[in-house]
Design a binder for these strands. Structure first.
Lengths: 124, 124
DNA sequence: TTATTAAGATTACGGTTGTAATAGTTAGGA
DNA sequence: TCCTAACTATTACAACCGTAATCTTAATAA
């Protein structure tokens, strides 16, 4: 339920969140683009995720289709909390300020953010 | 140098960053407010940080004063990278958007951010 | 029906983390 | 000088992680 998803496991989750139901070897193929893990490794990760009950599967003949049980947004929430807590004393504002000051943003992005803030301001 | 600092270790670092040179028992006292760890535990963390060479100490008589060897901003940088990579495909913009949309901000904070963006826009 | 084979399940193994207990050393007081 | 208190260093240990090899089972082709 609120088990943390590790960095390696996240790779698998990302597949399932974006591409939906997948067989183990499909997950492996997808991950292979980015990580040089063996299929065994990917299988291990899948198993740990099953144990943590954050994914499940349906069996269709010899094909096992895995799918997520938790939403991406929820997991992001959990990680974000820990990140905020640890680095910014739990204050989202500090984090935003940090990102705006320390990261490169294009002029368009800045404008987009400003507009977003305007909207947020008016409906608060 | 670029060793990751774990969640527990971070607690110790935070003391040293904010209050500067401290003896082990002072660190323990400071942390006790927030975590119910024994002094032994805190000592372990201090030792691991010494091994990772992210802190050091000076011996003054029987007093050991610990101090950080790496800057907070640097460690934040490292953690932030991993956070961005994992949750937002490495795109700071996505993170900022997420924070602005999902976190509670006061009207004043929103205005502060807008002003900050204006400044950034003009000197870019 | 049986052998093959493609899954999944179990087991492995060294390194890290959280959490702590025990052992060793040394500065200072008696 | 020697003991002791105050520190540090070493060791512990289970859980978790990254990474993977081996064992089982069951679907299918022959």
């Amino acid at each position: 339920m609120n088990s943390r998803i590790t960095e390696a496991e996240w790779e698998v989750m990302e597949c399932l969140w974006t591409r939906g139901n997948m067989a183990a070897n499909e997950i492996f193929e997808a991950i292979r683009q980015r990580k040089s893990w063996t299929d065994k490794t990917v299988k291990s990760l899948i198993n740990r995720l099953l144990n943590k009950e954050v994914i499940s599967f349906v069996k269709k003949g010899r094909r096992y289709e895995y799918y997520p049980l938790v939403e991406r947004s929820h997991c992001i929430q959990v990680e974000k909390r820990s990140f905020l807590e640890r680095l910014f004393g739990g204050r989202p504002m500090s984090a935003i300020v940090h990102f705006i000051n320390e990261e490169q943003l294009t002029r368009e992005e800045i404008d987009e953010l400003k507009q977003m803030l305007d909207e947020k301001r008016s409906d608060s």
